[in-house]
Every structure is written in structure tokens, then in C-alpha cells.
Nucleic acid binder design. Structure first.
Lengths: 391, 391
DNA sequence: TCGATTAACTCAACTAAGTTGAGTATCCCG
DNA sequence: CGGGATACTCAACTTAGTTGAGTTAATCGA
């Protein structure tokens, strides 16, 4: 969101320590349970440095010792793991008609959920309810303010983009504002703002099928279609935070190139159903239709195969991901069927003889609520080194 | 290339200093000429720290003072700029039939060029000639070995990918080797290995139209078609270094989806010309045909408009780049015409009302030889912070 | 069974590097 | 021509990682 490349900043003792804390936490997150000497080797630090950092993190409740493990010779390793209840992150989803909030701990479990209906999602209205929301979340979750790492915010394109789907409209009043700064000020917390697809992608990394992945893509079914891309452990933002607008990419159809979103999105399903006289406004509607294996819905599903296969081939070749994860606001069975139907190309860079693991995965978190994904943005930050501004 | 995320490493005093040196160099590179206090403010360091680092860099000949500049009140700023002759990088291109080498200094000018024909580009043959090539380069360029930053290597897919075009074949014997380590050992230097498109992209950042860009894409016309993507100042590599295989993405045509490369690449031009009985095996052939405005070639050019426009729309929406740069082994005028013909979509995230600068650019370095691009990889590294392994 | 070996970890002294604050030089402004 | 502003230097200080010498606790082998 900021104009300045976060990497373009100098290092000093304090920032190095922050970096090392994050790197250690991230390593423990990936490993599950490790000893200090192992961490030191893996991170290129001295055991002593790791010991100091771990003592600090344990003191703050972020890590906990999980006992000694005897492995061959030598002193048995004292293993450390994340303490899931050691910290929480706030997740906030701003919709045109409501603000949803959640509090999530380090392993991704939600401790609190709230919905606040608004008549208008303009900055003033939304920011006004923030402090109250934060305090209620802390109280309900039963954690002290000192354990609150920050707040993630998911909102539709305040990034000056023009949506293809009319259904995905910008929120009013946010266009020329620095949402990150505004929320940060209102909450007195570090804040990360992203779109729903990016949040969902990160969520799978924190506690989902992409745990341990450094490079993957998440195809997110919201109202439109979004793509959250992680490369080298970081979200791909692009020049203006608008990367991953996969719904707008042209795919071949019998009528020539059409935007992917016009064939593959909840909105397109709704249109398809409406043409057959079936109303399906909510996700629940689609869920029941799918449960009943409604032929019109299955017909829609069938026509997604071709454009989706083309999109997958494009994504694989441009990003070379470890896998593409599918998820979002569609019935889980439907997504599974979708994945099963896709024809994987063997002229893709993903079709290596030595590849491990499937090329397509279904998101583990099921229908991730965007607010939980928002919170995951913050959790992920504490695992991800960033010699950068101290917020 | 390495399996480990370079970011996942701890910081200490030495690595912080390296980081800061790189960050300072990069800042000076972008700014052209700046004072120490300004750098300190921009990088979040103390003036003193920047002074120390600059003294060190000046002592090594990487920076030079360009005089005082009086700007308003206060002590006039002592400005510093890169000293182009302060360091050199080796650039090496490995082709099936030859090894090309160059030595390039900090502003991207080539000081040495050599071509070494080989009967087979297998590892043994190629690595054997490396030390001699390095020494010849140093001698011809008239620089001491201490000024040699490292070597960049460009080679076609040693990354285990399967090319679409038969013309782009893997080099024999490199498939299961760690090219970076092998070259590093042979040359006793830090080495970076990339494909031609990535090298070309970085080259434009070091001394081309992408100077100062943090996020852009380079569409490279080699034998096939490649895409080098830079985001957040770093090359996008993907899980296995194969990101950017834009030639394989499917684009709509009258016959349904076809790989982009089958319509837009030098090879496709050759096929097109061959079908009309015209032989154009070399780049020179295409150059003369273009100079003569050969109708068959122009016909080929015309048919690239539609697929290229679709590809541009895809790239813009997935990467949200500041711009897409076009370049490679095609006549400069032809590339210019190509850019002019492309129909830019306004449903793209690049079509913002507040955008500055053109969406498409022509590479400044003309027909970048891959070897020069290879050297740029190393130059770019010295401008780019990387708390990571010391090579 | 018991000493040798191995490995994890701690303690205390050391070192690298950035920060802080006082002081100096040089310009502009009124 | 004095006061304010800005860049820069010097020297003392602080933070945090490293080094090397122990200590503890396990396995291995004679």
C-alpha cells in the first residue's frame, strides 16, 4: 500500500532483532517443534543468539517448550513450539452494508465474531466503530491488549481499480485515502489492508494447506474472482496493490476472448441460474441447489471447466507456483468437483517429472470468512521478516 | 535457484552492514546524486551511519563525491554518485553452440566481449573455459580482480522445464546440476543464473527504461517468448525459477486457444515466412526483411496484434506492473510498431485515472545481448538488499 | 560397566555497527 | 552582520550477535 518499497530501508540493531524474532517464529511455525541449536543452524545464527531470542519470545508467551526429545547422542533437545494463545490478531471485513470483525489466535482459530450493520461504509462511519470493536473483541476473547498484534482489514478495491463486474463496486469515500493509516490511527495498532483473495491466500499459509509454502496462488471465489499470489513468502502486490485481478484476464471461448469472471464466478452462476428462472442471490441458495444437484447449476459448473483450465495453465506458467489453491464462497463439494474437472496441461512448467504434491489443492479453511483471512495477514507478518518501517 | 528462501535467515552485525551498503548504493543509483543527510532520512538511518558507509564505499571506489550543491540554507550538500568504473561484473551466455562473455561496469557499459565456440555445451566443456574467460575479461577491461563483483549466467532452462517450441531445447548435461554452485566454483565468484528474459528485465532496471521501477514486466523476444517480472525490486522466480513462461499461456484465436508463442515469437515469424517460401534463419535476415518492409513479415506482424493485446491484458491484470517493457532480438523499429499496434484494454487495473507514464515501453538497451543482461544480474544485486547467505 | 564421544545449551567476555548528543562549518535571511 | 538552518564530524554509548570455555546428558564401544 505504501509507495516506498519496504525493503529499501536501513538495518540497525533494533530492526535486526525484530527481523530475527520474526524469522525464528516463522521457522518454528513451519517446523512445528524444534530445538534452539537446530534453529541456529537453519537461520545462520549462533545458538546463543537464538537462545536469547527464544527466552524473550517465551517470556512474552509466544513460544512454549514442549519437552525434551531424545535423538541419538548428546543432550536431548528442548523443543519449542508456537503457543497458539500467545497472541491474537484482529480481522476486519468492510462490506458496503456491514462491518464484520473477528479475533484470531496464532493457530488461526477464531475467538470472537461480530457483525455491525452500517447504512454506509464511508470512512467516518467505519472508523468510528473501530475502537469499540477492538475493545469488545479483546474482552470476549479474554486477552489483554498487550497480546494484540495488530489488525488486518479486508475491503474491496480501495486501490482505484475498475471492476469488471458491476456487483463488485468500490466503497464510497475511500478512493483517495490511505486506509492503512486511517485504520492504524483509529485502532492504535499496526494495520494491513488487502483484498479478499490476498487475505484468503495468506490464511492458507498461516493455518491451511499452504503451510510451509513459499510460492503458491490462491484462486478465490468471492462475488467476482480473485487471485492471491505469494512468492518467496510474500504477497505479490504489484505497483499499486492490484495484482491478481484474474477475473479480468481474457480466456478463449466460442465467441472469442471473454473475461474469466464472466464464466467463472458466483455472479456468473447467478446469471446462468437466472436465465433458467432460478433465483440464487445468496451463498445459501447455491448451497441448497448444489446439495440437490440442480441440473442448471451443474450445467454452469460444466461450462467453467474450459475457461478454468485455461486460467490454471496461465497461472502455472506465469507464476510457477508450488500449487494453486481453490477456495472461497462456494460449496466445498462444488469446489472439489471443479478441481477434479480441470484439465491440466503438460506443456506447463508445473508439469515437471520431479514435482512433488498435487498441482491443485482445495483450501483447508473451507469457506474462509474474509475477516479471518484479514487477521491472518497480521499473524503472517509476525512470521515473516521485514526489515522495514516499524509501523 | 536455491531451495531455501533467501529471506529466511537471521541478521547480525555483518549482514546488516552488507544490507546497508546495498541499500545505500541502490538509493544513490536511483537518485543519481544525493547527500548523506538525505540518504539517512530516506533510509531511516542516522547521518553518522550513512557517513561511515559512504566513506567505506568511497574508499573502495564504488562511490565518488560530485561536489557541493548549494540548496537553500545550511551547509551545502556534498553529493555522491555511483562511480561507474568502480566495479565490474562478468556476464556469460551459454548457448548450445557457443559461450559468450562480457564484462560490464556499474552503469552498464560493456568493456569486453568475447565469443567462444564449443562443440558441446555440456558442463565440463563450459566450466573448463570459465577461468580463462574471466582472466581475459579482467585483462582486456583493465581492472583488478578485486573490482569484480561476480558473474551472471544466462542459459536456457536448466530448470527442468519442457519447452513448447522445439527450437528451445535444454542444454545437455545440465538438467540435474546446480549450475550456480558449479559456475561459482569454476570462477571463484558469486554467481547468479537466470534465463534470458529475467536477465533482460534486470538489465533495464540497472541502466534502461526501468531504472527506478520496483514493479514491472519485460516481454522478451528470444527464440521463444519470455517474460521477466520484477516485483518489489526483486525478480519473480516462482517455486522453481520457472516463472514468466509467457510463451506457454493460451490465447484466444479463431481456432480456439493456442500458445502465445505459436503466434508471437521469432520462431513463429520464421514459420510464417517459410510458408511463403522465404527463409529467415537469422536475426539479420529478419532485419533486412523488415528494412525492406517485406509484406509477409508485416503480415506476420499484423497477426501478432490480437494475441499480444490479450497477453498484455493478462500480464497487466495479474502483475499490476508500472509498465510492460518490450525488447529482445527483433528489429527495434518492428518492436516499436508492435507496441503501437497493441490495443490496451480499459477494464485492466493498469487503466487507472491517476496513472503516470505509458503502460508499454520499449527497452532502452536495444537488442540486449544476453551476456550483458547476465552481468546486470550481478550489478543489480549490489543495489538490492538481501539479508541472505553471503554466497 | 565405565570412559570416550557427541550434542545441546549456558555464561561471560568480546566485537561490530548503529545511535546519540555536542560541536563545527557554511549557507540564507532580515 | 547576527541569527537561524542544514550538513556534517567526533567521541561516548547502546544494542545485539559472536566466541570460546564450561556444563549436562545422552549414546557408543571396549
Amino acid at each position: 500500500m505504501s509507495d516506498r518499497d519496504p525493503q529499501t530501508i536501513g538495518a540497525n540493531a533494533g530492526r535486526s532483532r525484530r527481523h530475527n524474532r520474526q524469522v525464528v517464529l516463522g521457522h518454528v511455525h513451519r517446523a512445528g517443534a524444534v530445538g534452539r541449536a537446530q534453529i541456529a543452524r537453519d537461520l545462520g545464527l549462533s545458538t546463543q543468539a537464538v537462545s536469547n531470542i527464544i527466552a524473550e519470545l517465551e517470556g512474552e508467551g509466544l513460544l512454549r517448550a514442549t519437552g525434551r526429545r531424545v535423538a541419538g547422542r548428546g543432550l536431548p533437545v528442548v523443543q519449542y513450539a508456537l503457543n497458539p494463545t500467545g497472541a491474537v490478531a484482529l480481522g476486519i471485513e468492510v462490506r458496503p452494508d456491514a462491518v464484520l470483525a473477528t479475533a484470531v489466535n496464532l493457530d488461526g482459530t477464531a475467538l470472537f465474531k461480530a457483525r455491525h450493520t452500517v447504512t454506509s461504509a464511508d470512512p467516518e462511519t467505519v472508523l468510528e466503530i473501530m475502537p469499540g470493536l477492538r475493545d469488545r473483541a479483546l474482552e470476549s476473547a479474554g486477552v489483554s491488549a498487550s497480546k494484540l498484534l495488530g489488525a488486518g482489514v479486508v475491503m474491496p478495491g480501495p486501490f482505484g481499480m475498475r471492476g469488471f463486474s458491476e456487483g463488485v463496486s468500490d466503497l464510497p469515500g475511500w478512493q483517495n485515502s490511505n486506509a492503512e493509516a486511517l485504520f492504524g490511527q483509529a485502532l492504535s495498532l499496526p494495520v494491513a489492508v488487502e483484498n479478499d483473495a490476498n487475505a484468503a491466500a495468506v490464511s492458507e499459509r498461516v493455518s491451511g494447506v499452504a503451510r510451509g509454502f513459499e510460492s503458491y496462488a490462491f484462486l478465490y471465489f468471492g462475488a467476482g474472482l480473485g487471485l492471491g499470489v505469494v512468492t518467496g513468502g510474500r504477497l505479490l502486490r504489484g505497483a499499486r496493490g492490484n495484482a491478481g485481478e484474474v477475473g479480468h484476464i481474457p480466456v478463449a471461448s466460442e465467441k472469442g476472448p471473454v473475461p474469466l469472471e464472466s464464466r467463472v464466478s458466483r455472479l456468473s452462476a447467478r446469471h446462468h441460474l437466472a436465465a433458467a428462472g432460478i433465483e440464487a442471490d445468496s451463498i445459501g441458495d447455491i448451497e441448497s441447489l448444489y446439495a440437490a444437484r440442480n441440473p442448471v447449476l451443474l450445467d454452469w459448473l460444466a461450462q467453467t471447466v474450459q475457461p478454468l483450465s485455461l486460467a490454471v495453465q496461465t497461472i502455472e506458467n506465469l507464476f510457477d507456483p508450488q500449487a494453486i489453491v481453490f477456495g472461497g464462497a462456494l460449496p466445498s463439494g462444488l469446489i472439489a468437483e471443479m478441481i477434479g474437472g480441470i484439465q491440466l496441461a503438460d506443456t506447463s512448467v508445473a508439469a515437471r517429472p520431479d514435482r512433488v504434491g498435487p498441482r491443485l489443492l482445495q483450501g483447508a479453511t473451507g469457506r474462509i470468512t474474509a475477516a479471518v483471512g484479514a487477521a491472518a495477514l497480521i499473524i503472517n507478518q509476525s512470521f515473516t521478516p521485514q526489515i522495514g518501517p516499524p509501523h
